[in-house]
């Protein structure tokens, strides 16, 4: 890592409450972060012109995995990111997005046509059931203090890496 931290923010199956908390944290922290973070992917903040996934230092991922297409995309995000942080309860634990995993047979029968038509996975998965997760920010929505601690940790690591890199020049 060197220079600005390249950040991606992604949402899968969830209510996107942590995205809202993140945009609210920007109210306070944007002046502090604007010279330290580069938002490579963040659908809520900007349009991706290329549609291609770029290399990221950190991918923040909220939501659980409901389909094979989501699983495939999550794996691509993992491949493109040095650090992947699971954001919020649905990403960390699967809940409440995974409530259909606990449905009765009668309830499952009722939703079966939709599951089949749109090719849902049999079970909703938390992120760690699909890929390696480096850090977790639990909470529904995410715990702001844990998020800020993790962000600070990686900003410090990035700064030290940059200093070390400069020293080698």
């Amino acid at each position: 890592m060197a220079g600005k931290l390249k950040i991606g923010w992604f949402s899968f199956t969830c209510c996107e409450d942590s995205t809202i908390i993140f945009t609210e944290l920007l109210n306070t922290y944007y002046p502090l972060w604007k010279d330290k973070l580069e938002f490579i992917h963040a659908r809520i903040l900007r349009k991706d012109d290329t549609g291609e996934l770029k290399d990221m230092d950190i991918a923040f991922v909220e939501g659980a995995i409901s389909s094979d297409s989501q699983e495939k995309k999550l794996k691509r995000i993992r491949d493109k990111s040095k650090i992947l942080v699971a954001i919020g309860s649905c990403a960390v634990l699967g809940s409440p997005a995974n409530q259909r995993n606990f449905f009765s047979s009668q309830q499952l029968e009722e939703i079966k046509p939709i599951l089949e038509k749109f090719k849902y996975k049999e079970k909703v998965l938390k992120l760690s059931e699909v890929i390696k997760v480096d850090d977790n920010v639990p909470g529904c929505p995410m715990n702001e203090n844990i998020f800020l601690t993790i962000m600070k940790k990686y900003l410090v690591i990035n700064k030290l890496t940059s200093l070390a890199s400069d020293g080698l020049k």
């Binding site: 899968f12 199956t13 969830c14 209510c15 996107e16 409450d17 942590s18 995205t19 809202i20 908390i21 409901s66 389909s67 989501q70 409440p96 997005a97 409530q99 259909r100 449905f103 309830q107 009722e110 939703i111 939709i114 749109f118 849902y120 529904c140 929505p141």
Partner: peptide
Amino acid sequence: EWKRFYTIAIQGKPVTSIPPLVARICGTCS
């Protein structure tokens, strides 16, 4: 969006427990 089936999930639950659960339908306008 991939569904989370809230109107099925609330079936069989005590009505007093429903408001904080359905707030999770949407983070924006919870």
